[in-house]
């Protein structure tokens, strides 16, 4: 059955389409003023359960990250400052994207540890951030907990991480969500970045 037969032709008022336009504007302005009111109350200090818009104003505000998130890689050091990595090539073998390139050197000072790194490159343009290298490493030498998510560059060669860069990265706890000793999350609020001058 044709829909035009069921509902009949449009009246002049319906063709003019003014009532649906006003209904749509009413809906939009209702949300707008509701959000405005809630944001103003929050800015003044009256906290309530009702939230305004859920937008995170990146880069001034950051979303808190969780501990198992796989971000940029870093190499760890032993207590005496040398890298933990013994160049066993486990991470290079298990990497699904084959993005790790390792060259080994001989460690002459300590005969118990035979090998050390000559060079360790990760091509972030190939990496799929699966975390297999972290699981495969027997020495806990590589971790993905730096909290650096901004991996963009203007050239492909600029995305190759070398050993020096990765050894000097520190785990950044400030971007992660904080937990108390029972394991409950302390605050889910967005992390505010310090104002850049």
């Amino acid at each position: 059955m044709n829909v035009h037969d069921k509902y009949g032709p449009l009246t002049l008022w319906e063709k003019f389409y003014l009532a649906p336009i006003l209904a749509g504007l009413w809906l939009t302005s209702k949300h707008f003023f509701r959000n405005l009111g809630r944001h103003i109350l929050r800015a003044v200090g009256i906290k309530s359960r009702a939230m305004g818009a859920v937008t995170i104003q990146y880069p001034e505000f950051l979303r808190p990250l969780f501990p198992r998130l796989r971000t940029m890689h870093r190499l760890t050091r032993r207590e005496d400052g040398t890298p933990r990595c013994v160049a066993c090539m486990m991470c290079e073998t298990v990497c699904p994207a084959k993005c790790i390139y390792i060259l080994a050197d001989e460690k002459l000072e300590n005969p118990q540890i035979e090998k050390m790194l000559h060079s360790f490159d990760i091509d972030l343009g190939l990496c799929i951030f699966c975390g297999y290298c972290v699981e495969a490493c027997p020495e806990d030498a590589i971790r993905m907990d730096t909290g650096i998510l901004e991996l963009s560059n203007v050239s492909r060669n600029g995305m190759v991480l070398d050993m020096e860069t990765m050894l000097n990265l520190k785990p950044d706890g400030s971007r992660y969500a904080q937990y108390d000793k029972n394991g409950d999350i302390i605050s889910n609020a967005y992390i505010q970045q310090p104002k850049k001058s």
Partner: peptide
């Protein structure tokens, strides 16, 4: 290409960083 954003997939923060570049 002007800007490369890497990741699998890149997080929204990374893509916004690329647009800022």
């Amino acid at each position: 290409v002007d800007v490369y954003v890497t990741g699998c997939p890149p997080r929204p923060e990374a893509l916004i960083d690329g647009v800022l570049k």
